[in-house]
Design a binder for these strands. Structure first.
Ligand code: FES
Ligand code: FES
Lengths: 141, 141
DNA sequence: AGAAAGTTGAGTAAAATACTCAGAATTGAG
DNA sequence: CTCAATTCTGAGTATTTTACTCAACTTTCT
């Protein structure tokens, strides 16, 4: 059960944009340099982030990406859903999607695991990540 | 972030064996029939479960697999580790395994997610799964 | 006009997943 | 003792997913 680079890279990228929220658009080139992720790949990730309305773009010189909403309104789960399609650990989890559902002995476990993941991702926002980052890179000597 | 069939099938298989704990070994054939999993594939899964000491085997007629310990002593995480190699959602999680670790803005999120998953898998045992199954298939009408 | 961006769709290499298969080894039952 | 039941093992493979790359095009700023 591994988290793919889509999710990992994507969240770092969104964080990067969040840092400049309310200031200026951030270009793919900048993100690529700061986070060490290929420009080509970032393009793909942003295609999805844009489609899901998490970022908006400005073309042309001085263009780039910005968050559509305040960082405190964007949950980690939003980003994950946009990038990984869904943050479900398995298909069977949705009611009615599995023929064994009714008598499946292990279903309850996966539901619990899923819930615990959702709890974290739904209650953490980009702002939280930014705050945490600020604390660690200024507060402490 | 999907759970592979190794983990899903494997836990169902271990549950099946757990039902007969203290009674008789359960053959791959039986599990295959009850859980609808290919015999060939189950062999592969049991190769790992055995290596990690979760099950023990008896060859020959009337042979099969049994749990090495009481179901209440086998955690879901034990089974997952045996089957999926590790239940870590990413490599970076281990201290020192990632060069970005120190200033990585998203690391803390993944650590939280990991912890919440571990909490569930470490505190749920095969016995819990069995109990739950029994409740749902006898208690109710 | 020209450079700096984003936009899009297609394509691909590598890795992981999800199996299959054949045959050898072991054991219990008759 | 023999045979059928069963595990054991290593190798092989098809499919899917991941993780990208690339090229051409559009938009916008200066
Ligand atoms: S709910 Fe689908 S196999 Fe358990
Ligand atoms: S800790 Fe490795 S990229 Fe964040």
């Amino acid at each position: 059960m591994k988290l793919s680079t889509k999710g990992r890279y994507g969240l770092r990228a969104v964080f990067e944009i969040g840092l400049k929220y309310g200031e200026e658009p951030v270009s793919i080139k900048t993100i690529s340099e700061n986070q060490g992720i290929s420009e080509n790949y970032l393009e793909q990730l942003f295609k999805n982030l844009r489609k899901e309305g998490i970022v908006k773009s400005t073309r042309g010189a001085k263009g780039g990406y910005e968050l559509t909403k305040h960082p405190s309104l964007i949950k980690v789960s939003d980003v994950m859903n946009a990038l990984e399609g869904s943050s479900k650990i398995l298909e069977c989890i949705d009611d009615g999607s599995c023929s064994r559902e009714k008598y499946c002995p292990t279903r309850i476990i996966w539901l619990k695991v899923q819930k615990s993941i959702d709890d974290v991702m739904d209650t953490t926002t980009i702002q939280d990540i930014i705050d945490d980052y600020m604390k660690n890179n200024t507060g402490g000597k």
